[in-house]
Design a protein around this nucleic acid. Structure first.
Lengths: 207, 207
DNA sequence: TAACAACTGTGAAATAATTAACAATTTTCT
DNA sequence: AGAAAATTGTTAATTATTTCACAGTTGTTA
């Protein structure tokens, strides 16, 4: 397996989530069309993705759920796990923390940062809040490699720069303001307003 | 202009956001390479998107910012605007409300819903909270056509079904659990865990 | 004013992602 | 056992998206 398409990576993560739910219900095998139905895609696409990661199912029995979960883990997780920081302990930052905590063992949110003194030294679902000035220090001490930016838009570029200086490896920017980082840092930007405008556009045109 | 690619729609929304910021600074014209830099894409792609919507810039002066903003508005907005509801007034729901309010005139969040009585009849950044049981009633009364689902994952399928019954036209699901809706309803799903896992994957492989 | 540089607009080529089509295999039914 | 149905794995075709390459235009400089 050489280069998995970006889209496949995203879907593998989603498959795993669905598979974990199935496994928890005691299901042991699943067909490509069942996964497809859940994810709103075609069974062929599921089979192709699974083919790309080199797994094969059993004819007429489908895929072994646990094996598939484990294999997806081998591909998208790191063995030792990665530590994550949330920068901006507002509603969105706290949503991320709550959402995440305890669900994944291989990715852990280990620190929150904010500039508001009221938010410092408190614990949010097990995650401690630090002052933004301690960003560099804590990132090194806690061996944090990924940061999620959930500050108000205006502050994003400055935060991104600080994160880069602190040696972060990947950034997920939830601010509507795109940030600039060196090309060796993986950057993913997501903007809720764009998604909502896209829905609005298709509601408008489809009707 | 017949069919704009989905990707182009997303970028147009982003261009507009960037252009509004430029306009606010008093800038009147912008080059394709300036927009490209902001959005981390190539100038050709910007020019092609703009070509697809039938606008043309001025050689050596670039694009007229205000004209482009207006044209993008003609394409992605509806004249009368659309009303939006947020279902689930947790951290994420409140983040959406705060984030949005007052920023766009053509898309307005006009109601929040929750099952927790403590959240009902309060105002969140100008948006009133209603009990979830009143979903159908309020959606009709307020002429809401789009809903954002920000409830805990387990509740998502049930909420989606209620929204469909209430006659919603588009759904943006921020729950990690995919929901099933009839094909005449536009559904967009976004899952923060997947995004974070994707960043983790590329951090892992790129280093 | 001639040469140069900086842009836009776009057909054609390249790349990425999805879907179709079907052989191969296994189970079930008669 | 033979036929029918269900399901995977995969090549080939198709569709979607991005990039290349360059003609055309306009301002600037010498």
């Amino acid at each position: 397996m050489k280069h998995l398409p970006h889209k496949t990576i995203e879907r593998l993560s989603q498959y795993r989530r669905a598979l974990l739910i199935c496994a928890a219900k005691g299901k042991t095998h699943i067909f490509s069309h069942e996964i497809a139905k859940i994810q709103h895609i075609t069974p062929v696409q599921v089979r192709r993705d699974i083919m790309l990661i080199g797994y094969t199912g059993t004819l007429r029995k489908g895929y072994n759920i646990q094996e598939l979960i484990d294999l997806i883990g081998d591909i998208i997780d790191t063995k030792e796990g990665l530590n994550v920081a949330v920068v901006g302990i507002g509603n969105l930052g706290r949503a991320m923390i709550n959402y995440f905590n305890g669900k994944r063992t291989k990715l852990s949110i280990v620190a929150g940062f904010d500039s508001n003194p009221d938010k410092i030294d408190r614990i949010y679902s097990g995650v401690k809040g630090y002052h933004i000035d301690r960003l560099g220090e804590i990132i090194k001490k806690e061996n944090i490699s990924i940061a999620i930016i959930t500050v108000p838009a205006g502050a994003a570029p400055d935060i991104a720069e600080k994160l880069v200086s602190a040696g972060i490896k990947g950034i997920l920017n939830y601010t509507p303001k795109p940030v600039q980082v060196p090309s060796n840092i993986y950057l993913e930007e997501y903007d809720m307003i764009t998604s909502l405008e896209k829905v609005a556009f298709f509601v408008k045109t489809h009707i």
